[in-house]
Design a binder for these strands. Structure first.
Length: 593
RNA sequence: GGACCGGUAGCUCAGUUGGAUAGAGCAGCUGCCUUCUAAGCAGCAGGCCAUUGGUUCGAAUCCAAUCCGGUUCACCA
């Protein structure tokens, strides 16, 4: 069934053509929701049309309204014109048709397969430290965008690139070698990723000492940093690693295994999963063949020292290096190689990279280079650039210990969920397993909703001194609304409904059905814009309308059996939509809470 | 310095391709649990949409300039 807004636009288009001889595109017709202080549900804005027709908006509105009513009595129930705005009332019959058609459909809003494939890369952790709040935003966002694409009929591949090599990895390895005396996650009882992260931090602390000592002997800070034993040791370790030194490789494998074990626990908790994991240690070399190709195609050029560059000044950017003078690959080379490999494996139409906005420049360059190399993968590359999560004091910094650890914040959310739940005492009959699951559903729900409800492109602020809310515009609010509905549905049974016996829809009933009808269109918009926050906002506003409806009208003690059945159907569809919307955010909804 | 992003209530955020009196939540203040879950509902209060010009029937939204904040421009990843 066609969406209401679309039907209105098409009707207006036809009337404008037939009655006024004015041809216009459907998308040029502006249809808004009617502001609550006016009568009606949808509003056609007449100014631009009036201007084109050189006619007064008010008389145009009147004529248009009459014709619309005449032409489509199934859709329109009435209209009024105020100061250039044509407010249209949607007929109860149409809304009821929609409700009866969809209330039993748990997949309402989900589109059938469209034969297109998209890859979403997200998470991309470094294997030298545990995940923090910023990673969580990335994970939730990536997972949710993937879910949005699935709901819109795409075949989705979720991928992850593990940044498992490089100087930063060597730092934690060296610190462990020097200071751990053989300690392991098992021997200390510390989660593997945290264990390794501790040595990364230790490296920084010890390096600072060494630098201070060297500065005391008269070196500048830069010289000291360059010449400190730890710096040199880490660099040597990277050389050894690239040379395949067995001892270094063994250490690297062991420590990475610790980190992955830790990540697995966290990923499982937050529900992040991947269809394909790439490892930088396996992908960092192949890009070099493309450097050769680029030189042949004259896309790249070589400097006297042997380094290879691309000149992007004509595109408004700078010159960018793609291979060092010693012949080794840089970050960009790897990413070109990876892009090619992904495409060869999956032939996707679109390749989305969920990466922080610090790397806008990098991805601009990446796409440009791929285009210039005429790689088939180039067209689909899209950088979904999201803003960092900041503290009120600014950026989180590992070295200053201001990083909000992922595991810690999840634990804290669970604890708050537990506290609220126990205070309210509504699920005292739950067994321990059910309780644990509920705390997890609510705590994680609050956290995910908090991170996904704001526009991904924008930076956002997290204040660790104020705990994340469980009231108002939050995950638990939506979950609570769902549980409320489920409570009704446990007590009442959905039976038959005699359509001819209905009494006019009450304002809140109508408002709810109209809101429900918008879900399908919303899912599409959110996907096109790759913006889960639209889904979060929708879920919240739908829940809000339902709660108003809930206190105003009783379902179980409705005025008549038909009213009761009507409301039960509204309840069912609302519960389904809330569950579906939250599902796209990766948030479960409980039956009771 | 070049490029890009942002500045909306005390705080955190919405605000569709320009549309009606700029909206939520939190915090503050009032009310509402003997009937389906009060993690709720109803209400009050809170705004020079950074500033100044411009475009027009109409600007938080578009354009220009300025101010403030951020990111980036490495033979780091």
């Amino acid at each position: 069934m066609k969406e209401i807004v679309q039907r209105i636009k098409e009707s207006v288009q036809v009337i404008l053509d037939q009655k006024y001889g004015y041809k216009t595109e459907v998308n040029d017709i502006l249809v808004n929701e009617t502001k609550p202080e006016f009568r009606g549900n949808y509003t056609v804005v007449l100014f631009s049309i009036g201007k084109m027709l050189k006619s007064n908006p008010d008389s145009l509105g009147k004529g248009l309204g009459e014709s619309l009513l005449e032409a489509d009595r199934d859709l329109f129930a009435g209209f009024n014109v105020i100061k250039g705005f044509l407010n249209l009332e949607i007929s109860d019959g149409l809304l009821l048709d929609f409700l009866h058609g969809q209330f039993q459909n748990p997949e309402y809003g989900v589109k059938p397969p469209n034969g297109r494939r998209v890859m979403v890369e997200y998470s991309s952790p470094n294997t030298n430290k545990p995940l923090h709040l910023g990673h969580l935003r990335n994970n939730f966002l990536g997972w949710s965008v993937a879910a949005l694409y699935k709901a819109n009929g795409y075949d989705v591949i979720k991928s992850c690139i593990a940044n498992d090599r490089g100087i930063h990895i060597c730092k934690s390895m060296l610190a462990w070698k020097l200071y751990a005396h053989g300690a392991t996650p098992e021997s200390t009882g510390i989660k593997g990723d945290h264990f390794v992260g501790d040595y990364y931090v230790l490296f920084g602390a010890e390096l600072k000492k060494q630098v201070a000592d060297l500065v005391a002997t008269g070196l500048t800070k830069e010289q000291a940093e360059k010449n400190a034993p730890l710096t040199k040791g880490a660099q040597q370790m990277l050389v050894d690693w690239e040379a395949g030194d067995p001892e270094t490789i063994a250490l690297w494998k062991m420590m990475n295994a610790w980190v992955y074990a830790g990540f697995d626990v966290t990923y499982r908790r937050i529900g992040s999963d991947f269809d394909k994991i790439y490892y930088e240690s396996e992908t960092y070399l192949p890009g070099k063949d493309l450097v050769e190709e680029g030189l042949r195609k004259n896309v790249f050029y070589q400097k006297d020292d042997g380094s290879v560059w691309i000149d992007l000044r004509e595109d408004g950017l700078d010159e960018k290096i793609v291979q060092r003078s010693d012949g080794t690959a840089v970050y960009m080379t790897q990413d070109i190689g990876l892009a090619v490999r992904k495409y060869e494996e999956y032939h996707m139409d679109q390749s989305i990279y969920v990466v922080a906005d610090e790397q806008n420049y990098h991805f601009k360059v990446l796409k440009l280079i791929c285009q210039k190399l005429r790689l088939p993968s180039a067209a689909g590359i899209f950088h979904l650039s999201y803003g960092l999560v900041e503290l009120p004091s600014g950026r989180m910094k590992t070295r200053e210990g201001t990083v909000v650890d992922a595991d810690d914040i999840i634990d804290e959310m669970n604890k708050i969920a537990e506290q609220h739940t126990n205070e309210l005492g509504k699920v005292d009959d739950f067994n321990p397993e059910e309780r644990t699951e509920l705390y997890d559903t609510i705590g994680l729900g609050a956290l995910k909703f908090f991170l996904l409800r704001v526009d991904p492109r924008k930076r956002m602020v997290f204040n660790p001194d104020e705990s994340i809310d469980f009231h108002g515009f939050t995950g638990p609010f939506v979950q609570y609304t769902h549980a409320r509905i489920k409570s009704i549905l446990r007590k009442e049974t959905v039976g038959s409904y005699s359509a001819n016996a209905y009494s006019a829809l009450l304002p809140l009933e109508k408002e709810l059905i109209i809101a429900l009808e918008k879900y399908a269109a919303l899912l599409q918009t959110a996907c096109i814009e790759m913006n889960p926050s639209l889904v979060a906002n929708y879920a919240f506003s739908l829940a809000k309308i339902f709660n108003s409806f809930y206190v105003e009208h009783s379902v179980g003690r409705a005025e008549s059996e038909d009213k009761k059945q009507l409301r039960l159907r509204i309840c069912l569809l609302t519960a389904n939509s809330l569950k579906s919307a939250m599902g796209i955010l990766g948030i479960r909804v409980p039956e009771r809470m």
